[in-house]
């Protein structure tokens, strides 16, 4: 996998997106999303061909408008809600009311994003059912809370297995091997990071407080949590990709936690220093680094991946026109 994107070229795509999104009060955002994806995917080459993102922005618009209306309703409910021990009652009631449709949204969004991702005109796909999504989304989240987090690595592992095992490239299925041990190790490590660094960071923040002020002191105390979240993201992604197979084809992802942490931190500083103008460059830095650490070990001829006849592009066109697309959360 090679990435040929260039910072200044992406900057041009990005600033045009920002200007049009602002000028249309957000109505342009589906176009912005598709153009961004097409720039990133179109510059990601495997073999001699790049990836493609083929979604139609017009079909994404109704789904986005509904999502915005729901969020706005939640905000207003939050504002006029009675408080119970400082928690906004209507807000949490609203979140609970949203729980039954969460699996539907997850399945639709993942299916949308994979279906429109193509390589050599063969599409990816997601076959997960709503029923199983209901198990791994709202129910698993509640079970994780009920177990005080102890069951969470296992639940997260099964959820990732559900997502990977139901994904395919054409007729070739993805499989996630391994076990939940890697997930438990990662979460234990993140707890270790927080416990180990918390006191030193509090001490340093206390010492520097008079010099740097409360804003930066708060950032210093938040560093262990940020490092821990990067650690979880990186370690889980490495584990997951390195245990994924596509037919006989294997993958390997070897991101370094410290390298990613450095990229995020330096990006934040540069974005703040340039009043946001560094955002497109920051995004490319992370994207390029991820791809540079990603390896594919093909087990079959690159030209022999079969498409799923049931998901042929012409059949898809009809399916898309009679329903709208949902693309939240990806």
């Amino acid at each position: 996998m090679v990435f040929y994107g260039e910072g200044w070229k992406y900057f041009r795509v990005w600033i045009a997106n920002v200007a049009l999104t602002l000028a249309t009060l957000g109505l342009y955002s589906p176009w912005a999303k598709v153009r961004t994806r097409r720039y990133l995917y179109g510059n990601t080459y495997f073999g001699n061909e790049s990836f493609d993102f083929t979604a139609d922005p017009v079909s994404m618009l109704p789904g986005r408008l509904i999502a915005v209306a729901l969020i706005a309703t939640l905000w207003v409910a939050d504002l006029f809600s009675p408080l119970v021990y400082g928690f906004s009652l209507y807000y949490f009631a609203g979140l609970l009311a949203f729980a039954p449709i969460l699996p539907w949204v997850v399945v639709r969004a993942r299916s949308f994003n994979l279906r429109h991702t193509r390589w050599r005109n063969v599409g990816f796909a997601f076959h997960g059912t709503y029923r199983e999504a209901a198990l791994w989304y709202p129910i698993a989240i509640l079970a994780g809370i009920a177990s005080m987090g102890l069951a969470w690595p296992w639940l997260r592992w099964r959820r990732d297995q559900y997502l990977t095992d139901n994904s395919s490239f054409g007729l070739t299925q993805c499989r996630l091997a391994g076990d939940s041990g890697g997930y438990y190790g990662t979460y234990a490590g993140s707890v270790g990071i927080v416990i180990g660094l918390m006191l030193p960071c509090l001490f340093i923040a206390g010492k520097l407080m008079p010099a740097v002020g409360p804003f930066f002191a708060t950032i210093i105390t938040a560093l262990p949590f940020f490092l821990a979240s990067v650690y979880i993201t990186v370690r889980l992604a490495n584990y997951r990709w390195s245990n994924t197979t596509l037919g006989g084809t294997r993958f390997r992802l070897r991101l370094s936690v410290m390298q990613m942490f450095w990229l995020y931190m330096s990006n934040m500083v540069l974005i703040a220093a340039t009043a946001g103008l560094f955002i497109p460059f920051a995004r490319l830095r992370v994207f390029r680094y991820r791809l540079s650490r990603f390896e594919v070990f093909l087990a079959q001829d690159i030209a022999t991946f079969q498409a799923d006849p049931a998901a042929s592009p012409s059949a898809l066109g009809a399916a898309i026109s009679d329903g709208f697309e949902i693309d939240v959360g990806a």
């Binding site: 795509v13 920002v18 000028a23």
Partner: peptide
């Protein structure tokens, strides 16, 4: 029409200058 508008803004330095001015102006 939408695609042509976007293309006008991301085609060259002038387009970028217009996009930047519009974005900063609106913000």
């Amino acid at each position: 029409g939408v695609d042509r508008l976007a293309r006008l803004l991301d085609r060259d330095a002038l387009g970028v200058a217009v996009a930047l001015t519009v974005a900063v102006g609106i913000l």
